[in-house]
């Protein structure tokens, strides 16, 4: 185990696309078990930051160290292993496999991690309040319901980090609140680290720490 104080550490991370820079020299440290909200206008580099932390994208320069491991140096398959051991994902679009039902979608993540266990997957759906919908296909579910399944899927392998990219971006206020309450409950139960990207102040306030980005840089970093 690495130091709890520097669980996630970004050093001088930059990301340049062909036409523009998305990140300009980010330095950032996240402690283990923190709930960090990343806010900022669209195009400020929030999502890029998230993708780089998860290894879905490579930084142009700089270093990302998670749990004492430098992930920027990893090969594709090492990265996949790292991801399934340590990281859970929730996207803005639900990104569920359309032909698998709710429980099977959760089982898929188990399968990639180790062994699919239908009972455990069903339990996890129960915990996110979807126990009555395990047989439904994504297209038969509402946006809020789909996001719950995504949360169940993200947490099924007990990751240490949950990365969420606008998880409530497609939801109304009522559903947003329900999802955040659910996340908060699970967070207090399990104490994983959350990094949640949003542009919505209501969503941001659920975190203890808020990082504000603009133009590829961190302009504010406040604790509540």
């Amino acid at each position: 185990m690495g130091s709890a104080d520097e669980f996630i550490k970004l050093r001088c991370v930059s990301k340049e696309y062909a036409t523009a820079s998305a990140l300009r020299g980010i330095d950032m440290v996240v402690e283990k078990g923190q709930w960090v909200s990343v806010v900022g206008p669209s195009g400020s580099g929030k999502s890029t930051l998230l993708n780089i932390m998860s290894g879905l994208d490579n930084p142009t320069s700089g270093q990302v160290v998670i749990d004492s491991t430098d992930i920027t140096a990893m090969k594709e398959d090492e990265m996949a292993r790292f991801r399934r051991e340590k990281i859970g994902f929730v996207f803005q679009q639900s990104h569920l496999i359309p032909y698998l039902n709710a429980v099977e979608n959760v089982m898929l993540a188990q399968y990639f991690h180790s062994i699919a266990d239908e009972r455990e997957a069903a339990d996890s759906l129960e915990r996110v309040g979807m126990g009555h919908r395990i047989d439904h296909k994504p297209s038969q579910l509402s946006g809020g319901e789909q996001q719950r399944i995504c949360i169940a899927r993200a947490l099924i392998n007990s990751p240490q980090i949950l990365l969420a990219d606008e998880p409530t971006g497609n939801l109304d206020r009522e559903n947003t609140r329900k999802i955040l309450e659910l996340l908060n409950r699970l967070y207090s139960e399990r104490q994983f680290t959350i990094i949640l990207v949003t542009h919505d102040p209501f969503v941001a306030q659920w975190g203890r720490r808020t990082i504000t980005m603009e133009d590829g840089k961190i302009i504010r970093d406040e604790y509540r």
């Binding site: 879905l56 398959d77 292993r81 991801r83 990281i87």
Partner: peptide, 16 residues
């Protein structure tokens, strides 16, 4: 492709 991308994001190794 999208499906494959998602599987990858979920941490699937290329063999699986």
């Amino acid at each position: 492709k999208e499906e494959i991308g998602l599987m990858k994001a979920l941490g699937a190794g290329s063999e699986k």
